Computed example of a mutant assay.
Amino acid sequence: INLLQMPSLRKKDDIPINGEDITPAKDGCLYKEIVHESTDDEAPWFDDKVTIHYIGTLVDGTVFANTREKDEKVSFNLGRGEVIKAWDMAVATMKRGEIAKFFSKPKYAYGLKGIPGKVESATSVIFEIELIDCIGKDISDDRDGTILRRVIKKGDAYEPTNEDSVVEVMIKGTYNKGEVFDERTVTFYAGAGAVQNIPAAVERSVFRMTKGQHDRLRLTGKA
Rank of each mutant, 00 (worst) to 15 (best):
L112A: 15
A100K: 05
K113D: 15
K107M: 11
K95F: 12
E98T: 09
I115W: 00
K113M: 15
T123R: 05
K95Q: 14
Y110A: 06
E98F: 04
V91L: 10
G117D: 01
K113I: 15
M94H: 05
D88N: 03
E98L: 05
D88E: 12
M94T: 03
A92R: 07
A92Q: 08
D88G: 05
M89F: 11
I99N: 05
K95H: 15
F103T: 03
K101Q: 11
P106A: 10
P106Y: 02
W87P: 02
L112Y: 13
S124T: 04
D88S: 03
I84E: 07
R96L: 04
V91R: 00
K95S: 15
A86F: 07
A109I: 08
K107E: 15
S104I: 01
I84D: 06
A100N: 02
P106D: 00
S121P: 11
A122P: 11
K113A: 15
A109W: 09
W87G: 01
P106E: 05
T93S: 13
G97P: 08
L112R: 14
K118C: 09
K105F: 09
A92H: 06
Y108N: 06
D88P: 03
F103V: 06
F103R: 00
M89G: 07
K95N: 13
V125M: 05
D88Q: 03
P116R: 14
S124V: 10
A100L: 02
Y110D: 10
Y110R: 07
E98W: 02
A92F: 10
M94S: 02
I99G: 08
K107T: 14
T93C: 12
I84H: 04
M94F: 05
M94Q: 03
E120D: 15
V91P: 06
T93G: 09
K95G: 11
F102H: 01
K105S: 12
Y108Q: 09
Y110M: 06
I99P: 00
P106M: 08
I99W: 01
A90V: 02
S124P: 05
F102T: 03
K107C: 13
A90C: 09
